[in-house]
């Protein structure tokens, strides 16, 4: 037994400079069921478009407030790059929403409630300057670190989800998901490093993980249900847990097992995001992504 407490151990070689990439996606040819014959997996993944525009705008909003607390030059540069990337993600997913509406599936009833969640419930609130305001800022920074654990998990999954290619998924949608996923993998350590730098308390990390996880499960199951029940091409469709497990086994969604395994990973005292995922794979995808290279897909 060592006397020093276990601490997060980053994998040193993984650091690269982060920069927002200009992207362009043309949605004209993307069908409603962009994963042919699998509306359940399509809509489960589509929930991303409901959550990310509001959620990532909120990340940017919170991180702009935390910049003055950063005392490390390299971390500040990372956070600034992160902010730019997240702003682009929010805008790119936001563009899918009017396309869904054009296809007869208006997402506004759901997104207006997500907007309330991020703008009001998780917004700045009217707190007095000082302790309360600082506490709430740190709480949100920790929440973002926990959420980013899952975005990195999903990013890594989608980069390796060959089953989506085999089933003929729409190339533009796949490119959006993989561009976003790759940038999530690329910047997967930033939110965690920032949290460790400005606070780092284990209790806060565990507590906010529980909140984030519960919220994600709630938002995701309601989102999939919303899409399935309002799909104009499937009047009698319903979402069920059985479909979720089946898609996980087939490889069109992350498996339940892999998701369960990611829980103790984040709660481990020696966890660091650089221990998982591959920056090399992410950067290789970004170099070849049509959307991130001048929008050849448009």
């Amino acid at each position: 037994m060592s006397n020093t407490p276990p601490a997060p151990a980053p994998v040193a070689s993984e650091h690269i400079e982060l920069k927002a990439r200009n992207v362009s996606f043309g949605w004209e040819d993307t069908p409603l069921h962009w994963l042919p014959g699998d509306p359940f997996a399509t809509h489960t993944i589509n929930v991303l478009h409901l959550l990310l525009p509001a959620g990532e705008r909120w990340f940017v909003h919170v991180y702009k407030q935390v910049l003055p607390y950063i005392k490390d030059e390299r971390l500040r540069a990372d956070v600034v790059g992160f902010i730019g990337q997240e702003a682009m993600h929010a805008a790119a997913h936001d563009d899918v929403l009017p396309h869904l509406k054009r296809l007869g599936l208006d997402p506004t009833p759901y997104t207006a409630q997500v907007d309330w969640l991020f703008e009001k419930l998780l917004g700045d609130r009217t707190l007095p300057p000082g302790k309360a305001r600082h506490w709430w800022l740190m709480e949100r920074v920790a929440l973002i670190a926990a959420i980013e654990h899952y975005t990195a998990f999903l990013g890594d999954w989608v980069l390796n989800a060959d089953e989506l290619d085999r089933r003929g998924a729409d190339p533009v949608m796949l490119d959006l998901l993989r561009w976003h996923g790759a940038e999530e993998v690329e910047h997967r350590s930033v939110a965690f490093d920032l949290f460790m730098h400005v606070d780092g308390g284990y209790h806060r990390r565990a507590r906010t993980w529980a909140t984030a996880f519960t919220a994600l499960v709630f938002l995701w199951q309601r989102g999939t249900r919303f899409f399935m029940e309002n799909d104009p091409e499937l009047p009698a469709a319903k979402a069920s847990l059985g479909q979720f497990f089946r898609a996980g086994r087939q490889g069109t969604l992350p498996s339940a097992g892999a998701m369960l395994k990611s829980i103790p990973t984040y709660l481990s005292r020696t966890y660091h995001p650089s221990q998982e995922g591959s920056t090399a794979q992410a950067v290789a995808y970004l170099a070849s992504s049509p959307g991130a290279n001048g929008g050849a897909a448009a």
Partner: peptide, 24 residues
């Protein structure tokens, strides 16, 4: 309830932001 309000019991933001960007 959930059919009418997909994220019940959360209320909706009066002027929706997502999908309604004035920049689009």
């Amino acid at each position: 309830r959930i059919a009418r309000s997909p994220l019940w019991p959360l209320p909706a933001l009066e002027t929706p932001v997502s999908g309604h960007s004035p920049r689009r």
